[in-house]
Design a protein around this nucleic acid. Structure first.
Lengths: 343, 343
DNA sequence: CTGAAAGCGCTTACAG
DNA sequence: CTGAAAGCGCTTACAG
């Protein structure tokens, strides 16, 4: 049970606030005020403290700050274990980079947690136990009530991707609907007549929204939208779905694949079936992963800015923590078509 | 400067150890002992406490534990910003998954930090300030002295990938040398005569070791090893390097690419030049990323188990923190050839 | 603008 | 095996 860190190591010799106070010739209170950027400190005191801090290489003890200040100076990024395997690594890494970029300069640490099937209660206990000031949640599946639970507990929470099971909790998402709509238009503009789609999972908002956008684009142009197969954001599922579509309609001449990673599998099947891309079948992906540009042929795709998603989530959360009001309940980030060779 | 979390929010109403003690009819000391799995507690007391804990949904305040116990129950994963962009996302995500898997069940949190050019001192101050019990470092470049500095400060540190600038600091790495050697043998076994390589950066151990392994494999078979071009673990650099090799020797009939991600670029160039893979040119990659199997043609590659790398690093660090002795100074994880179509 | 003092919620010798 | 008490290093009213 308690595997933690067993060894009772000796107290590390680190400079404390008291020593800074002594060196600067002021009280601990004043040092604390300087550290926390409070306004009512004389310039003289402020400078003396700053100098002492850098001379002594002082770094405040976070545990003490948290305990005394009732503020963790720390936010959590929660990823559903399942999700991290599926929605794929590039997504996760991109969000993480954005979160970090936005956190830079703020004195806030990021704790990473993965929610495992069965551990939910522990996770909620921990998060609501005052260890973090707020939570960022990504890779939600189905009707996962986690964000709802956290928000109800009064913990500021921002979700990445529209949460299906937690309406009302603030979220940031790429504009999947319009991105997919644009993809459909692009294909239609190319003069394609038999346009299919490989959609994402039916229990994820990202799957639903991209499918809905594609359907809207098709219906706006009065093109039938009945060539639909589903995948789960893996290349294998993309391959299988492509085979299904080809079976449904061998004369299909275009396909919108709701994720680049599935498009890879689809391209492989088209290649194996002797279909030339884009001559016989035009293909549009979604995401614009690094691999889209090196696919054979280079993949035309709908770009979403995952790093910006991470930045925006973090900004939204930090704004709330700073007490800002009238924050938007959700934010939709624009996508853009990247035209390469496949369509 | 102090952007932190501004709002002085009301103290969250959370159960404390004292309430658990009262509910269980014992002292705070005894509750603490149960929580920390100490031996000298009567079964009766232990059970009463356990029940009270789960009934009250108690979760210990980590800040208080850290402050009182001089133990952070927290380790840091430090990624060099530059590295995270280059050595690529799948690597990072895989390591992270392994770290988390190994941490599961231990009461240790993971704090993620990215080291930025210029921030080194802040980072070192923070890490050495007692906020974490140990550090995992990945994606090191060149002669980065960070691990050396941390280790010298007495902070248990484990590096992922052989650290060039910090000899003596414990590390875990894939056996890049032997993996590359095997790749060379595979190509030679196929009867190829003009075998080139696209190596990784010259300032990274992973680049050096894979190049050295390939050279050894070539020299063991008395095949000249002079067809070498360098890339930086991006598809673009792989493409450029492939062009260089083709220029060096148009009759080249095989290439070992030191990373799948570069192999993607190389395949693209071969395709554009009308070279059939594997008929005209056999290609072997390294890593076995998800995209290797969906490359056109599916890529034969040297598999490294990145998740296991993360697990092993974590195990090594936690073992040290637990006071275990005679731990290995470094660990090399085996790689394996995955034969697909490209070679 | 500044300082003395209380208190955050735990752990840890110490005494029993 | 158990409990009372001190103390970890900060922040925060409070009084000046």
């Amino acid at each position: 049970m308690t595997d933690a860190v067993d060894q009772p190591r000796p107290r590390r010799a680190t400079t404390r606030l008291e020593e800074v106070a002594r060196a600067a010739g002021v009280s601990k209170s004043t040092v604390s005020r300087v550290i926390n950027g409070e306004p009512y400190v004389s310039t003289k005191a402020r400078e003396a403290v700053s100098q002492a801090i850098s001379r002594l290489g002082y770094s405040p003890n976070q545990a003490a700050r948290t305990l005394a200040g009732n503020r963790a100076n720390c936010i959590a990024l929660v990823v559903s274990e399942q999700g991290s395997r599926v929605l794929a690594d590039p997504f996760f890494a991109g969000v993480l980079r954005g979160v970090h970029a936005e956190l830079a300069g703020r004195r806030v640490q990021l704790v990473l947690m993965m929610s495992k099937e069965g551990d939910e209660q522990d996770l909620v206990n921990y998060l609501c136990g005052g260890h973090v000031d707020g939570v960022l949640v990504i890779s939600l599946h189905g009707q996962d009530p986690l964000p709802r639970v956290l928000a109800d507990a009064g913990l500021p929470t921002v979700v990445g991707g529209r949460p299906l099971g937690a309406a009302g909790v603030p979220y940031v998402d790429s504009d999947n609907f319009n991105g997919a709509l644009e993809a459909a238009r692009h294909l239609i503009g190319l003069g394609r007549k038999k346009i299919g789609t490989i959609a994402g999972p039916r229990d994820m908002a990202v799957g639903m929204d991209r499918l809905a956008g594609w359907k809207r684009g098709m219906s706006q142009a009065r093109v039938p939208a009945d060539l639909v197969a589903y995948g789960d954001f893996t290349p294998e599922s993309g391959a299988t779905a492509m085979e299904e579509l080809l079976e449904l309609d061998p004369s299909l001449d275009a396909v919108f694949v709701a994720a680049d990673i599935m498009a890879l599998g689809a391209l492989q099947v088209l290649h194996a079936r002797g279909k030339r891309v884009p001559e016989d079948v035009a293909v549009v992906g979604f995401d614009d992963l690094m691999i889209a540009s090196t696919a054979v042929p280079p993949l035309t795709t709908v770009r979403q800015d995952v790093e910006r998603l991470g930045r925006t989530m973090t900004w939204r959360l930090m704004s709330e923590l700073a007490g800002e009001e009238n924050l938007p309940p959700f934010l939709l980030l624009p996508t853009s078509m990247v035209t390469r060779v496949s369509a």
